[in-house]
Design a protein around this nucleic acid. Structure first.
Lengths: 105, 105
DNA sequence: TCACTTCATGACCATATAGTCATATAGTAA
DNA sequence: TTACTATATGACTATATGGTCATGAAGTGA
């Protein structure tokens, strides 16, 4: 059986890729079909489909079928929290690096 | 210049690997030197060193030298938050899957 | 039936990653 | 100096990943 640490890593890894993060950002306001997602993030449909599947498998997204369209949504609101906290950390990091640059040169 | 989305992905990716997650878990209580970390997580010294470097570069860990030893610590308390939230999500996921298994057969 | 739309997937390629082993580097202490 | 400890890194291997292009599968509607 898969270890807890591997499940945790799988979720974080699923979120730790620029294209997938863009998808999560786009899904913030609610579910969207693939046909809306891939133009919004500027990626090919096939590539988008693969990334959606990675996040679906990790438990990051959920999926709903409606006729021809397949709607993906963020599965747990906690995912948004995680992404927001990380965004905050990045801002701290960037501020820190800029201050350092200023201090050095 | 690197995009914000890439910084965010870098942090999440740095956390999204079982060996690195074990390191973060071990560093919860405060800084530790490499010589404490690698036996604690059961990995080789060289491999541990590489993973520490990945997290250092991503801004997940900080580093402090003291004589021969190098102490690593979690750089931002928010990292712990992220990891904890993800652990919560995993528990929801595992519960969901088990319920499904029970419901199915 | 046929044409069309939406999404998933097979085949493939280039690159990245995790890990191992041996070695280099830096600091300590005799 | 020499010997030792702690950490980092070069060289390498096997596998994973992200992406593209072409095609398949499923649903819709004429």
């Amino acid at each position: 059986m898969k270890e807890l640490v591997e499940f945790r890593a799988e979720i974080l890894k699923a979120l730790g890729q620029p294209t997938r993060l863009k998808i999560v950002d786009f899904l913030r306001d609610g579910e969207r079909c693939v046909c809306e997602i891939f133009p919004a993030i500027g990626e090919e449909q096939s590539n988008t489909s693969r990334h959606l599947n990675v996040m679906l498998a990790a438990g990051v997204l959920s999926r709903r079928k409606d006729g021809l369209k397949i709607y993906y949504a963020i599965k747990h609101p906690e995912i948004i929290e995680v992404v927001d906290i990380v965004t905050g950390i990045v801002k701290l990091e960037i501020y820190g690096r800029h201050s350092l640059l200023k201090a050095v040169g």
